[in-house]
Design a protein around this nucleic acid. Structure first.
Lengths: 275, 275
DNA sequence: ACAATCGTTCCACTATTTGAAACCTTGTTT
DNA sequence: AAACAAGGTTTCAAATAGTGGAACGATTGT
């Protein structure tokens, strides 16, 4: 429940043997975002046909992929849903943060995001949509780029240099808008500014018309746990107005960090009370 | 989106080499339901210390497990949340079934479940709770026993014999209540009845006071896709009243199956329209 | 009927995994 | 302060599992 090591970033080097390669294949299939045929997975893959075939077979066998015999396609399997349930409940900040997000959302009346790092990407683990009712799985689990989102930059600013260097190497620096930061040096300068300022902005860097203010969630030992943000459209709100929310955001972030660290499990609860 | 092969059940034999073993370890950690220390995973494990250690390292490296350095514990990692998002959207019936569940839920005013098979267990992929607002990840992803739940029995009744035999071997047949079926022969007799009747009941077999009617979701080629159920308490409803819902349930199940099979992806949509 | 594409299997060759044992590291006891 | 215990980490030769070129089958389209 507390700030976990890989909240930062895992190595995910291609040096994890057979298991690493198999998971690479799993990611590849998931990345398509739709059911795919074997040949689609094959083209552009680094693995030879027979090898890839074996991996796909193994993963399907294991329920990590599911195979549709009618359409002859593979897609991520339902076993992942069960595993993710456990992951979300135990490794993400979402369960702890829920009441805080609810409160923040009600207070500011804009869209609120809760995110953590997943490898070099931003993973949204929860969301409050100003108007719309909750739609969890379709919201949580989405990923976005780190270098051009508010939560992404807020988190990058608090990674240790070794990790940051590795993560930066994996950014595409694609120019989504005229405001997107497209070089490492520009990004690093921005991260310095974020560190001194304490929070990050998204100045229409990812999508035109969308701005946000983001706050890192740091443990008491200043280890990165995640980030939260309030997003708005330029039609309805300005950066200056968003910045007024900074103190509220900071308090919320601190409250989440505190709750996450205080969290104890039943068998330790008595112990914590000194019994 | 359509009935996928492993909706039935994957083999998950211990014959999947290194990858299978690693995923076994992942399951083991997830099964604890709380962050665990290495030594806790070790005790009772079939793997020797060094071997288990390497697996845990690899999985952590890969973001499939996360490690909390403060508490020295492992838990399922956030990477799973991203993968599950894809799995839920593509391999589960949930996205297709959503409007149908909404309608059914509004109509009957009782709790509605949507489930699929995951190995030998029932995996709940969506839920409508009569009163309470939606809480997705905390609902979807949960698992339950197959031999003593309505959706479980409804699905078992439509597995092919080879698969059924394997799945039955994995049932605990624990007697949760006096009504629980505790033998293979009792279960098989019940499955025959379900096949002829067309739907299944849970007669307080899993929890005292909880009854339900469940309907299998079958593809046009009668392949099992999942099941849905309406649950109630004995204080508020009787089995006879639940059975009156059977036609509605059947229609909903058929509608879900039809939608799932009709589902086409953008690049095929034009093709489907004959362009 | 034929060709083309996609999917599956084979098997000699190689790289990875295995796990007992030794070794650290951290916290506790005498 | 020294000795101990328990959990965690590393080593390395033997054992096992993975690799992938190539050949083969199945399915689809003309």
């Amino acid at each position: 429940m507390t700030g976990r090591k890989d909240v930062g970033v895992s190595e995910r080097q291609s040096a994890d043997g057979t298991v690493g390669k198999a998971l690479e294949v799993l990611d590849r299939v998931a990345a398509f975002g739709r059911p795919v045929r074997f040949s689609e997975v094959l083209e552009g893959s680094t693995f030879p046909k027979a090898t890839l075939y074996r991996f796909v077979q193994t993963l399907t066998n294991q329920g990590m992929l599911s195979f549709d015999p009618d359409r002859q396609t593979y897609a991520p399997g339902v076993r992942l849903v069960r595993l993710a349930h456990a992951a979300w409940a135990q490794s993400s900040l979402a369960p702890v943060a829920r009441p805080h997000l609810d409160r923040l959302s009600a207070l500011v009346g804009e869209t609120v995001h809760l995110a953590q790092m997943d490898n070099a990407q931003v993973l949204y683990v929860d969301k409050r949509n100003a108007a719309m009712p909750v739609e969890m799985f379709s919201q949580a689990g989405k990923v976005g780029p780190a270098y051009c989102t508010g939560v992404g930059k807020a988190m990058l600013a608090h990674l240790d240099e070794a990790t940051l260097a590795r993560v930066i190497k994996q950014q595409s620096f694609h120019a989504f808008t005229p405001n997107t930061l497209t070089t490492e040096s520009a990004l690093r300068a921005e991260l310095d500014a974020i560190r001194t300022r304490g929070h990050a902005f998204d100045r229409e860097e990812h999508e035109p018309g969308i701005i946000c203010i983001a706050m890192p969630i740091l443990s008491s030992s200043r280890r990165l746990m995640g980030a939260l943000s309030v997003t708005g459209t330029t039609r309805r709100i300005t950066l200056a107005e968003l910045e007024k929310l900074a103190p509220t955001l900071r308090e919320t972030a601190q409250a989440i960090a505190r709750d996450a660290q205080d969290w104890r499990f039943p068998e330790n609860a008595n112990q914590a009370k000194g019994i």
